[in-house]
Design a protein around this nucleic acid. Structure first.
Lengths: 150, 150
DNA sequence: GGAAACTATTACCCAAGGTAACTATATGCC
DNA sequence: GGCATATAGTTACCTTGGGTAATAGTTTCC
């Protein structure tokens, strides 16, 4: 499989650029979208939940959340554990989620145009396996089942 | 194919981190490796050749080449066209290429462990098609045939 | 021979992430 | 009960990697 990384990585920049363009209407970027997406699909969450999910350090998530708060997309309420802040979507956040979700799904369909349905499914299923292999070797103890997002 | 981007993007950071670790012995990162790889596989090249290949602006490549020159991995010689500088690998560069190529290929095999050979091939062939679809919509006039790297 | 195009560089800026150190709170254990 | 340890979140500072605009020098093409 020599050359796999080349092929994998060469989509990255154009894809991210495309996604960021898509969301620029809402002053969002894909990194901010990840937070919105997580909260929408896992319910109100803490900063640590989110940073674990995306394998990103806490300060990074702090910044993302602060930005989303400025945009009135999320709000933070104190948790029962008073160290925690529970992050949840606002009304506006819910709306923006729906609109972005629609746009992103459209793009997901467009980038698959002309590609065999079978092959799409195989790639879809194989990517998380590759991810599991990469992370396994990194020393983190994450099971493949935890990696696949619902 | 909803969720495809999630699945695609979640490998990115761990993979890049892994690759950069792999090459840190030589004070290289994957972005520098791309330049070395290009020159090795296309012969001595100009900055514009490389920036076209990776869809990256010229100043970015200038910086990468300057770094590689500091590391004595490439040298620049004036071209026949006196605007151009031809970038080529040094002896040291050739050696480092071989060693990195080996390490990267090993990692490419490791991340495919336990994955059906057929599926690997399908993913390998499908990724450039996705890339072509993304770039098509971006307005650039690159044909799929040009995207697939030899 | 001069306008337009092209190669490469410089200066400046931005996005995104990391580390270390810190505050505040919670937990566990003796 | 009280102290050591762990955890949630934040702040300050740094690094990587990329982009834009402007510019110098060179070539191309009427």
């Amino acid at each position: 499989m020599e050359g796999f990384f080349q092929r994998y990585l060469r989509l990255y920049r154009p894809l991210i650029t495309r996604l960021n363009e898509l969301m620029s209407t809402y002053q969002l970027s894909y990194s901010l979208w990840q937070v919105i997406f997580y909260i929408k699909n896992h319910g109100p969450s803490t900063l640590v939940d989110i940073s674990n999910q995306y394998q990103v350090e806490k300060p990074t998530i702090t910044r993302r959340v602060q930005r989303l708060e400025e945009l009135k997309i999320v709000k933070q309420i104190p948790g029962k554990d008073r160290r925690e802040k529970i992050i949840q979507l606002t009304e506006l956040g819910e709306e923006i989620y729906k609109e972005c979700r629609k746009k992103i799904t459209e793009l997901e369909h467009r980038v698959m145009e002309g590609i065999d349905k079978e092959d799409q499914i195989i790639m879809f299923q194989t990517l998380p396996k590759v991810q599991a292999n990469i992370m396994k070797r990194e020393g983190s103890n994450i099971e493949q089942s935890e990696i696949v997002d619902k």
